[in-house]
Write a protein that binds this DNA or RNA. Structure first.
Lengths: 205, 205
DNA sequence: GGTGCCGCATGACATCTGTCATGCGGCACC
DNA sequence: GGTGCCGCATGACAGATGTCATGCGGCACC
């Protein structure tokens, strides 16, 4: 911890938000944003190039999600602290982030002061998680969908027909229908559109 | 323009982003964020209470959209300059924002420097619009959907069945099908899910 | 005061979607 | 080396969805 400054990498795709967050952290005396990236697949290289203490990762990014980036960092650079930041407080996101090795999980709805606070806390070895979200994640239970069901549902999300899904996934049309049918039942909804909707809401997609 | 400081109202629902943007603007010598709100339906009251020069409005907010808020402000407080800010660079959004009386339209993808710049420019009487977006809005043409088609499509967006839509909108099931059918044709897609998707993308919903 | 568009409706039809029963090979677990 | 789950498939069926032709009343525009 040379000079006492906490060195942070900031990953967020929207320039204006990213630079605004950097400005916010820049107001803190003990925090320094030393690198910024706009894509998930640029995080690892930037982290290696900059000798940082904490990585701040938005989930929704092109190239790779912040959760995927967190998993990479956790594997390649253990010791580095990981803060995952997201617009959507979906229980499934929290769960995935934790499994990827995140030390903190913040939603953008939270007061800005929590950001710097979380950075300091994870560096002190603490974990930072919104209690409400943690409860929801535990109560909501694990993702009930199998890999294939998730895969098919994700592919169906844009309104593709069964025939298109079958071609894209190299499955028969009947099989596609079966997967969607079981997904619909597991999610207790009445058609694929609702299934996509609720799976998204829970962070299961 | 007492004291030479530009007084800004900031409306954005995500606290962290809102406060980060405030920090960003706070770095400018000639700009001062004098009020912040998190809901679209609180914008007008805040604007009246604070004697501001520029209102910075996010589109996606609870209560009322930034575009609706812009329309209110334009009507009630003409003279006030309006900057609309959004995550999504949808041509329809730009069009609606301009019709609502906005002086500037910015996407959050743009460099942070453009924000302060836009604030200064609108105050100088200029209009600020991303040229790429402007072209897309003109090329994309106007919304081809009728009011009813839009209404039905919006209601169908969450996966409701025809029967539910008919009940909710006080229409017969056949009529619902007709509206969706014409909307599907106008949008050149093959089912309601795709229709919802592309209408959203263009900002026509 | 026609002409034409819009909102609303009906009925018929083809297609798509969701469900269910059933089957088979592979693989893991006891 | 059974038993059972998973991935994949088929076929049949009911119900939902999308299309089309057609009709009627209201209203705006020339």
């Amino acid at each position: 911890m040379s000079g006492g400054m906490i060195k942070v990498l900031l990953a967020e795709d929207q320039s204006m938000v990213r630079e605004a967050l950097a400005a916010l952290l820049g107001l803190e005396d003990d925090i320094e944003v030393v690198a910024q990236v706009a894509r998930g697949d640029e995080v690892l290289a930037a982290a290696r190039a900059h000798d940082i203490d904490v990585a701040l990762l938005d989930i929704e990014m092109p190239g790779a999600t912040g959760i995927e980036a967190a998993a990479q960092l956790h594997k390649e650079l253990p010791g580095l602290k990981l803060v995952v930041l997201t617009t959507f407080g979906r229980p499934g996101y929290l769960r995935s982030a934790m499994e990827a090795g995140a030390d903190a999980f913040l939603v953008k709805d939270a007061p800005a002061a929590q950001l710097a606070e979380a950075v300091r806390k994870v560096l002190a070895g603490e974990r930072v998680i919104d209690p409400t979200l943690a409860a929801a994640a535990l109560a909501g239970g694990a993702n009930p969908l199998t890999d294939r069901e998730r895969e098919v549902l994700r592919a169906a999300a844009d309104g593709s027909t069964n025939a298109e899904l079958a071609a894209a996934l190299h499955l028969s049309q009947g099989t596609v229908r079966n997967y969607l049918s079981t997904a619909i039942q597991k999610l207790a909804v009445r058609n694929r559109a609702e299934a996509v909707r609720t799976a998204r809401e829970k962070g299961w997609l």
